[in-house]
């Protein structure tokens, strides 16, 4: 990273708040948006937080947030600005694509113009659950990439990160510039302060058309998962244990 000014990009996605029962739209391949509330994707909030902490540690620099989608995404960009990001860019598109490569190409086309030190992504967008856009942008820009990091240290143009594997951890070293995707556990995002919310209103938010191609992945169908049978309470206290064991052996056949 340059002597003092660090340049950081964060890509954030507007996603529905998940504590609802979703309904499938009339076309059978979309989620009915009626009544849904939206927020910044959880993992992207941690990405914003990581960017802000890096800038604060370095002393000076810029945190720019990018979001691809309809005008409504400006609400999420403003939230990131109110947390402390410096400027925002909306890549305007009627909707995001089902192909993560199309999204990655559109983001890469915009990010390419600037020499970033770090480009942060969330590990996964919890609506489409592709877990792909970050590493794809890295490939398209020819940058090194560490995905799903849960600890991070950056100093003197190099960094170390931790990744959780199944039953193990990786300690990874990388040079800057780099693409990082953020897992839970890296940090807890700050809440926007009242002052931050006021300041965000005056921060620059640029709108540009997204260069979104059709891609090779589309949604063929969406459905609700099969409902589980209604729960059943089989008894109270330790006295119910023999019955539980019997059911696990004879009915569920897992013991």
């Amino acid at each position: 990273m340059g002597a003092t000014r660090v340049k950081i990009a964060v890509c954030i996605k507007r996603v529905p708040v998940m504590d609802v029962r979703f309904r499938i739209g009339a076309d059978g391949k979309s989620v009915d948006e009626t009544g849904l509330k939206y927020d910044v994707n959880d993992f992207d909030l941690w990405a914003v937080e990581a960017a802000l902490q890096l800038k604060e540690k370095t002393g000076a620099g810029e945190v720019a947030v990018f979001s691809l989608g309809p005008d409504a995404v400006q609400e999420q960009i403003r939230k990131a600005l109110s947390m402390g990001a410096d400027r925002g860019v909306q890549l305007k598109a009627a909707s995001a694509s089902a192909d993560p490569l199309s999204i990655a190409r559109a983001l890469a086309a915009e990010l390419e113009a600037t020499q970033w030190d770090v480009i942060f992504f969330g590990k996964v967008a919890i609506d489409t659950a592709d877990q792909s856009v970050g590493p794809m942008v890295a490939e398209l820009l020819g940058l090194p990439c560490v995905s799903a990091i849960s600890a991070l240290e950056i100093a003197n143009g190099r960094g170390t990160a931790k990744r959780e594997l199944e039953g193990a951890q990786e300690i990874v070293e990388f040079p800057l510039p780099v693409v990082l995707t953020v897992d839970e556990g890296l940090n807890k995002e700050r809440l926007p302060s009242l002052k931050g919310i006021m300041a965000a209103k005056k921060k620059p938010l640029e709108v540009k058309p997204a260069q979104l191609d059709a891609g090779t992945v589309s949604v063929a169908a969406m459905e609700l998962p099969a409902e589980r049978a209604a729960g059943r309470i089989i008894g109270e206290g330790a006295a119910a244990v023999p019955e539980l064991v019997r059911l696990l052996q004879t009915e569920a056949k897992v013991l």
């Binding site: 490569l101 990655a104 659950a129 592709d130 792909s132 794809m136 990744r163 594997l165 992945v217």
Partner: peptide, 24 residues
């Protein structure tokens, strides 16, 4: 595999080949 390592690898391979990916 959509394991920690596989999820890291598959999108990179797809991007190199210019195709999308379905995860998980």
């Amino acid at each position: 595999p959509a394991s920690a390592s596989g999820r890291d690898l598959a999108p990179r391979v797809a991007a190199k080949l210019g195709v999308g990916v379905a995860s998980d």
